[in-house]
Amino acid sequence: SGEEFIAMYTYESSEQGDLTFQQGDVILVTKKDGDWWTGTVGDKAGVFPSNYVRLKD
């Protein structure tokens, strides 16, 4: 389980282990570690910068 966040911006990365997503995607955040959080979008999982998302209303 985790908290749902909304992507405010598209995040694209070629780094292994990074979670890429489109603006407006719902991200289920499973771990918060400083500026880099872990989460899932659909069947993808990985880390992403926390300043790209906001808490879902």
Rank of each mutant, 00 (worst) to 15 (best):
W36V: 13
A7M: 00
V26F: 05
E12V: 08
W36R: 13
V29D: 03
E3T: 11
V29Y: 02
M8E: 13
D33M: 11
T40D: 02
M8A: 13
D25E: 14
A45Q: 10
G46K: 00
K56E: 07
G39D: 01
V47T: 06
F48C: 01
A45R: 13
T40K: 14
K31G: 12
V47K: 15
T38M: 08
D35H: 15
G2F: 15
T20G: 08
L28W: 14
W37Q: 03
N51V: 12
A7D: 02
G42A: 07
D57Q: 15
Y52V: 05
Q23A: 14
L28I: 15
Q22K: 11
I6F: 08
T30V: 07
L28S: 13
E3W: 05
K31C: 15
V41L: 11
L28P: 05
F48M: 02
Y11N: 03
V29S: 02
N51M: 10
T30L: 07
E15D: 12
A45N: 15
I6K: 05
Q23G: 07
E3V: 11
S13T: 08
K31D: 14
K31R: 09
V53G: 02
L28M: 11
K56V: 07
G24E: 04
K56Y: 04
L55I: 10
T30F: 09
D33K: 06
D18P: 02
V47A: 11
Y52A: 06
D57R: 04
A7I: 02
S1T: 14
T30C: 07
L55W: 09
D35C: 06
Y11S: 02
F21C: 02
S14Y: 10
Q22W: 05
Q23N: 05
G42N: 07
I6L: 08
K31Q: 14
A7G: 04
Q16L: 14
I27M: 03
E12W: 12
F48G: 01
D33I: 07
F48P: 06
K56I: 05
D57I: 06
E3C: 07
D33S: 09
S13Y: 01
Y11R: 12
V41W: 04
V26D: 11
V26P: 09
M8Q: 08
Y52D: 04
Q23R: 13
G42Q: 13
G39T: 00
V53C: 07
K44R: 14
D18C: 14
T40M: 15
V47H: 12
E12H: 15
D35G: 07
V47C: 15
T20R: 09
D43T: 14
Y11W: 09
Q23W: 03
L19V: 05
K56C: 14
F21V: 01
S13F: 03
G39Q: 00
E3Q: 11
V26S: 12
W37R: 03
W36I: 08
K32I: 03
V29P: 04
I6G: 04
M8L: 11
Y11F: 12
R54H: 09
E4N: 05
Y11K: 03
G34Y: 03
S13N: 01
D35Y: 08
F21R: 02
I27Q: 03
N51P: 02
Y11Q: 04
D43W: 04
I27L: 07
Q22V: 11
W37L: 05
F21D: 02
N51G: 12
L28T: 11
S50P: 07
K31E: 14
D18V: 12
S14V: 13
E12M: 09
S1C: 09
G24D: 12
R54V: 15
D25H: 00
L55S: 15
S50K: 06
Q22N: 15
Q16D: 10
Q23F: 04
D25T: 10
T20N: 14
V41N: 14
T10W: 02
T10A: 06
V29C: 03
I27K: 02
T38P: 03
S1W: 04
G42M: 05
